[in-house]
Computed example of a mutant assay.
Amino acid sequence: MRNPAYKILVSAAASMLLFACKPGRVVTGKSKKKDTVATVRKLDSLDIKIGQMVMVGIEERTMIDPNDSLLAELRDGKMGGVVLFEKNIAKTNSADSFRNMTRAMQQAALIPIFVTIDEEGGKVHRLKEKYGFVGMPSASYLGGIDNPDSTLFYNRRLAAEMHDLGINLNYAPCVDVAVNPENPVIVKNGRSFSADPEIVTKHALLCIQAHHENSLRTILKHFPGHGSSANDSHLGIADVTNTWKFIELEPYKNIIESGEVDAIMTAHIINRAFDTLPATLSKKIISDKLRGFLRYDGVVFSDDMQMHAIAENFGFENAIALSINAGVDVVMFANTIPNLQGRLSASKVHAIIKNHVANGTIKKERIDEAYRRIMDLKKKKF
């Protein structure tokens, strides 16, 4: 008897094959059938499913050489996405170089990859004007003037530019509520739209609308709310037990109920009222609160697993297992923060996840579940 997932895999393979066809390539008759069958066989494998769960930073690359090891990893299906930063923007011919780089990665990939970036605006703005890109004001500015037309204008302009550059998923909008005015990483950096969850919801939905109009997916962050912390989780544990407010869930609830959510990213914060583990590693927070209480069944991305709050407190391999078992579908390693593990390749992360599955630490069903969500998001039409 065929695996019950076979029909899903056939459908996914056919859809992804059409999505992945390169311009100028004609696939007809027997060759089309042969390609589809070959794709199904590759998709129906643990290696490919695990690969879709791996997101990595590409270090200092501003171009991709044809013999680059990154391309080999993409051809082997070791990763499902890349995250790009300002350091990946060439100082000259910035747009053309960036576009060529994203195109080279997509052409090498077995399944089209998520090409992601942090583009919130304000201080979290990678595509800067000095490289010839458009300006983007901060969330606090847009929430402060509270003008829907302005939020749509700036986000439409930014999203159109990202689409042209080959980016298809943005780590934005930030829906953290500005609960703590002294919060060092969100509020003081202008990354929250407002202390009012209704204003946060309104402008986040406008941001999402502008992205969807330009065929970009978005990621809400940082669940279950980073706006009340007194510390920066890039540097260590951020405990919000005594400061977190229930209103920090309101934007998530509202946007989930609107049906406009593409994906959600977890925060490396601890709230002992929920669990003693950071949210990224907590089944009580991701599976019980996000998926159970808020009824969300889409893709969950981790924040950078190399941030000190995780990397230096829970052990690299252990943290991967905890996060996936908690309900994280895509584990992200940005390769930007100095830490004990150093730079991490997609192949290394992939091997660790596969070993966890082999020894039973992570169930194959959990991999299948994550893969189904990821593929659904990659096939999403706007």
Rank of each mutant, 00 (worst) to 15 (best):
residue 112 P to E: 12
residue 113 I to M: 15
residue 127 L to T: 08
residue 118 D to A: 01
residue 157 R to V: 15
residue 154 Y to M: 11
residue 157 R to A: 15
residue 127 L to I: 09
residue 122 G to E: 09
residue 112 P to S: 10
residue 121 G to H: 07
residue 116 T to C: 12
residue 155 N to L: 03
residue 112 P to G: 10
residue 142 L to H: 10
residue 135 G to L: 09
residue 148 P to H: 08
residue 136 M to A: 07
residue 127 L to Q: 00
residue 112 P to L: 12
residue 144 G to Y: 13
residue 147 N to H: 02
residue 121 G to I: 10
residue 114 F to M: 03
residue 157 R to Q: 15
residue 139 A to T: 04
residue 149 D to N: 10
residue 126 R to P: 02
residue 132 G to M: 12
residue 124 V to F: 14
residue 155 N to P: 04
residue 118 D to E: 04
residue 127 L to G: 01
residue 156 R to S: 14
residue 152 L to H: 04
residue 148 P to K: 05
residue 139 A to Y: 06
residue 117 I to N: 01
residue 109 A to D: 02
residue 128 K to G: 08
residue 152 L to W: 03
residue 114 F to C: 00
residue 151 T to M: 06
residue 152 L to A: 12
residue 131 Y to I: 06
residue 147 N to L: 04
residue 130 K to T: 07
residue 137 P to K: 04
residue 110 L to W: 09
residue 139 A to H: 15
residue 145 I to C: 07
residue 137 P to S: 06
residue 138 S to F: 09
residue 157 R to D: 11
residue 150 S to Q: 03
residue 136 M to L: 15
residue 122 G to R: 09
residue 147 N to M: 04
residue 137 P to L: 02
residue 159 A to L: 06
residue 158 L to T: 14
residue 144 G to D: 11
residue 128 K to H: 04
residue 150 S to E: 06
residue 155 N to W: 10
residue 121 G to C: 09
residue 151 T to F: 00
residue 150 S to W: 01
residue 143 G to F: 08
residue 124 V to R: 13
residue 155 N to S: 15
residue 131 Y to T: 05
residue 154 Y to E: 12
residue 134 V to S: 11
residue 138 S to G: 14
residue 158 L to V: 14
residue 157 R to L: 15
residue 159 A to T: 10
residue 145 I to R: 03
residue 125 H to K: 05
residue 113 I to K: 05
residue 110 L to C: 06
residue 136 M to H: 13
residue 133 F to Q: 05
residue 118 D to T: 02
residue 128 K to T: 03
residue 151 T to L: 01
residue 152 L to R: 15
residue 113 I to P: 01
residue 149 D to A: 13
residue 126 R to V: 05
residue 118 D to W: 04
residue 116 T to F: 02
residue 116 T to S: 15
residue 150 S to M: 03
residue 145 I to S: 04
residue 129 E to G: 00
residue 159 A to D: 05
residue 158 L to E: 07
